[in-house]
Amino acid sequence: MPKEVDKKEEINKTNDKAFVKKLKVIKEKVFTFCKNNLVLPYTIIGITLFFLSLLLAAQMKSMSESESVLQGKRESELADELVTLQRKYNDLKNSYDENVKVVEEYQTNSATNNELISSMKTQINNLSALAGTTDLKGEGIIITLNDGTALADDTVRADTLVHDSDILTVVNELKAAGAEAISVNGQRIITTSAIRCVGPVIQVNYQKIAAPFEIKAIGNAQYLESAMTIKNGVVDLLSEYGVQVTVTRQSDIVVGKYEGTLSFKNAIVPEDDE
């Protein structure tokens, strides 16, 4: 029995040896084939050409896909910018239209006699009156300022002219005296209004206005008038310089609304933490 086992093992061993020999022979054949046909250098060159053809194909494909109109990087960037801006513009326009519709609904839906809507409507009216986007009327005073004629003695001519600072002080005094709505030559004074000198004319709300200046103010007419004509007050001061000043009380003054668009770019209403 043990002899047979040994024989089998021997047979196996011989088979293994033959197999290993065959493998070796094949390996040598492959090596010689490779050496004779320069397989290694050709594969290396092939790998480099693989990269080259990869880049070429990818580039050609992506170039044919992209629009032929856009040539050069800067132009493409500009086009992108244009597209994004147009999109932004469209979005803003849409939201603006929606908001306008909402406002219109609030204003016209009074027919439903809804309490909420009516209260909102009064709120809107109050707020727009405060903001200066509606005409207002009531008792008040009208102040007219005009360039004075040069006095007989040689006082400086420039003093008799109405300056932006003169109008500014008048407006300031009116506000201090409790004026509720002020306009200068039809330009409503609102939160963003500026009064300043631009060469020979004066700018209010970025609109040029010239003499004679008519300043309308709604408020308690008596208070306003007394605040203007008080001794050593604004009127005294201006007429001392040679400016023609007249103050008239009226029981019914109409102050025009602010002509223009009102919007804040930087100021944001903070959200309540309720």
């Binding site: 693989f50 990869l54 990818a58 992209s66 493409s76």
Partner: peptide, 17 residues
């Protein structure tokens, strides 16, 4: 190798920039 490169290149997208 060149054919393999072209084949893979057609499936690769290069951003325009």
């Amino acid at each position: 190798f060149i054919l393999a490169g072209i084949f893979t290149g057609l499936n690769v997208a290069i951003p325009y920039s």
